[in-house]
Computed example of a mutant assay.
Amino acid sequence: MSAESTLLLQTFWSWVCGLLAVGLLGVLLPIVLGLLVGVLPLAIVRRDWRPLAAVATGVPLAVVGGVWALFGVHVGAPRQDFWVGLSVQLGLLVAGGSTVAFLRLSIRRIKEYRVAMRAVLHADTEELVEVDGDFPAPGPRKRLTGIEAEYYIAEWMRHLGATDAIVTPARADGGIDVRSRFYAAQVKHRPMDFVEVETVRALIGAALLENRTPLFFASGHYSRHVYDAAARGGVALFIFKPLEGRLVAANATASRLRQDGLRAPVAMTR
Score class of each variant (00 low, 15 high):
S106W: 02
A43F: 03
Y183A: 07
I166T: 07
V59M: 04
V167G: 03
L9D: 09
G220P: 02
P214D: 04
G261Y: 10
F216S: 02
L128Q: 13
D132N: 13
R109K: 13
L208M: 14
P78W: 11
D164L: 04
T213H: 09
R181T: 12
Y152T: 01
S223C: 00
L86K: 00
L52M: 09
P265N: 04
Q80G: 00
F71D: 10
L61C: 10
L33M: 10
T99D: 06
L9I: 11
G58C: 02
S255D: 15
A77P: 02
P138T: 04
M157S: 02
R256E: 15
A137N: 08
K142W: 14
W156L: 05
V22K: 03
A162I: 08
M157W: 02
Y227S: 11
T11V: 02
M268R: 12
L243P: 01
F71G: 14
A154N: 00
R143Y: 13
E130Y: 08
P41L: 05
L203M: 10
P191D: 08
G96A: 11
V39T: 12
L61K: 07
R224C: 05
L209M: 14
L128M: 12
A230V: 08
L61D: 09
R79M: 13
R171C: 10
M268A: 15
G220Y: 02
L257I: 12
L203R: 06
A119V: 06
F217D: 01
V59K: 00
I153F: 01
Q259F: 15
A252C: 10
T253I: 14
P51Y: 04
A165W: 05
V32Q: 10
R270A: 14
L103P: 01
S219V: 06
T145C: 11
E148C: 10
Q10C: 07
A230I: 06
E148Q: 14
L93A: 14
G66M: 06
V115L: 14
E148P: 07
E126S: 13
A236R: 01
H74C: 07
L209P: 00
R181Y: 03
A250R: 08
T11Y: 00
R201G: 10
G58D: 06
R263S: 15
R114C: 04
K142V: 14
R179L: 15
L36T: 03
L257P: 06
L103Q: 04
A172E: 15
L8S: 12
G234N: 06
A162V: 04
V200K: 02
A69Q: 06
I31L: 14
K241E: 15
R190L: 12
A236D: 07
A202N: 11
L33I: 13
V16S: 05
G220L: 07
D134F: 09
L24R: 06
P41D: 08
A101R: 06
I176M: 05
I239P: 00
V226E: 01
F102C: 03
R190F: 08
P41R: 00
R114A: 01
R158Y: 02
F216C: 07
G174F: 08
G58Q: 07
T253M: 11
A264N: 08
G96I: 09
L128T: 13
L36Y: 02
G261V: 12
V84Q: 01
F216P: 01
